[in-house]
Design a binder for these strands. Sequence first.
DNA 1: TACTCTCTATGACATACGTCATGGAAGGTG
DNA 2: CACCTTCCATGACGTATGTCATAGAGAGTA
Lengths: 195, 195
Amino acid sequence: MSGEERPPRERMVYSAAQLVRSRGVSATGVRDVVAHANAPRGSFQHYFPGGKDQLVGEALAWSADYAARWVTSYGRHAESPSPSGLFAHMARQWREELTARRYERGCPMMATAAELAGGDSPVNEPLRAAAGRWEQAVVDELVRMGVPAERARGLATLMISALEGAIMLARVCRDVGRLDTVVSELAPVLDSYAG
Amino acid sequence: MSGEERPPRERMVYSAAQLVRSRGVSATGVRDVVAHANAPRGSFQHYFPGGKDQLVGEALAWSADYAARWVTSYGRHAESPSPSGLFAHMARQWREELTARRYERGCPMMATAAELAGGDSPVNEPLRAAAGRWEQAVVDELVRMGVPAERARGLATLMISALEGAIMLARVCRDVGRLDTVVSELAPVLDSYAG
DNA sequence: TACTCTCTATGACATACGTCATGGAAGGTG
DNA sequence: CACCTTCCATGACGTATGTCATAGAGAGTA
């Protein structure tokens, strides 16, 4: 709470991620980010000569790293790891986040994709990289628990797709139950990686 | 191409839906919508005294109706209907749309949710209604083909979640294969509605 | 003709945006 | 000391936004 915080540059990236998550990219002004980060306004143009695009790109990279780390953390703390367990692990965090913050924040990747993925924004590459990073983390984790590599890719895509959609539905309907539903409905497929 | 088009009011709602789908809500200006619909600017404030919120709300309702009709259309044209067949039916349209328009347009519900679902916008109610309408259409269709009512709800949530997420991934990665992946991976669960 | 209702036209308002320009502190190095 | 790089401060510019106010067509009705 007190003491030294992280340097302004990092704070701005973090703040950008959080604001984008809750209001989207266009609705998140650079001035909002600076204010939210308690950062000097002049520092923005110094640290981010690429402007808003650079900031959003870095926010995406930060978020992807965070997500990937969370995925990886499952393997270390699970007693008998399973694909469905990993998926539940991923969903649980969202469940807590959504209830704690009253559905305020969604997924930054979804927010950015919805606004920018259709055009040719410079943010498109960071976006794609973020998705790839997250997906790869899931694939690695699945392979680590014995899922064949080819099947792992498909399962990872399915898991992330279902999770993202469930997050959206949960926010729209203000009901985290959608997350539970998806987790329990998906468990059978995830754990039947025989073929 | 020629002949009389639909009245300006309808055209504006339709244009709003398309623009929101591709650029998001905040990035879609009222003036953009008016221009895209070839509508008189003064007509906007006449038909939509509720302003932009009303317009976006009606665009969502329009989209939900469209989606629901598409879902319902499956039952009439399928020889041996199955849940996985319905899901493939839903995904197929998106596959074609995404390839035809080069990933330009996504789902309007996702776009709106990403930007507005976190706050207390007036658009939140139309949003929730749209999600409910779509979900209910899927539930009805599942029940019609013999899926127990309770299970149908869960499956519908799963189907919509996975579809939405796959649309997002497809746009981000510019790869419609994600849709195929989700369809084939999900087929087993969808058709095993015994328990 | 006169009145009314629906629809359109146009200009203006206040605000907010991203970006840029300029200048000043702070601190290390020659 | 001078010098230079890093970082912060502040004001301004041009543009775009959503909304509003006002007025004018156009048709229908008395």
